[in-house]
Structure formats: structure tokens, C-alpha cells
Amino acid sequence: MREWTIKDLIPQRQPIMMVDKLCSASAEDATTSLFLKEDNMFCHNGCIAEAGIIEHMAQSASAMAGYNCKAAGKPAPVGFIGEVKKFTLNFLPQAGSTLSTTIKVVSEAMGITLINAATSVNGEVAATCQMKIFIRED
């Protein structure tokens, strides 16, 4: 797969860049990673807050959409979370760990993408959810 830097793929900038790397991507699925630094804005008492996991999942989907737009010669779009459903938390990952996330597209229509996301640390699933993302192509 062609290497883009993450800044080419997502519109967010520091302090809220919550994906380091798009590891694989296709039209239907993607995997991403994030090394969780102690000074990450979502960290609290050495763990990431739930909100940070959800943001990481959303930006993972955004990076995937960005990759597919770039591959089609279009700029990376801006995506907004429209809805989070069935977010289930098993544990809060600790600072110093690496989050690995899988995104699977369930459906895509009229600028709304429905995805399933699962975030793991060392193969242990920390959280899963369904998410509706509104894509705005400028």
C-alpha cells in the first residue's frame, strides 16, 4: 500500500491527533495504530478516557476514508461523528501501550458511513462500538 503520512489522511491536528498510522486499508476495512503517550490530551491517571478511545476509532475511520479519497485522486474529507451505538468498554488502555484498531464498513450512503470498530491492546479487546460518520467532501 502506498505510504501517506497521517497528516495527509486526517484533518485533525495536535493536540487531538489520535491515530499514528494507517497500517492497512481497503474500501471495506482498515487497521490503524496509536501509541498512547502519557501527555495525550485524553489520558487521566495513566489511562486513556473512554472519549479518547471513541475519538481514536472515529479518526481511524477518517484515515481510511482519507486513504480511499487520496487513491481516487481526491483530497481527504472532513468527517464528523453522527452517532455512537453499543460502545462496550472492557478496560481502559494504559499510557505507554499501543492501541490497534480494526474498522469495518457496514454501509455507505449519501455521505453517511456506518462502521464497526474494535480497539485492542496486545490482542485483548479494550472496546468495541458501531459508529455513524458524516463525511463532508470539500
Binding site: 484533518p11 485533525q12 491536528r13 495536535q14 493536540p15 487531538i16 491527533m17 490530551m41 473512554e50 472519549a51 479518547g52 471513541i54 475519538e55 472515529a58 472532513v78 464528523f80 461523528i81
Partner: peptide, 18 residues
């Protein structure tokens, strides 16, 4: 957070509302 979400276009992140 508004410096990065998004540069030049501040929008309150939905996860921050959560």
C-alpha cells in the same frame, strides 16, 4: 483542542461533549 479540531475552524469535538 480547538487548535487541532480543526485548524482555522473551531468545532467542539463530540467526544469532548461526552
Amino acid at each position: 483542542v480547538y487548535q487541532g479540531h480543526f485548524p482555522g475552524e473551531p468545532v467542539s469535538p463530540g467526544v469532548c461533549s461526552l
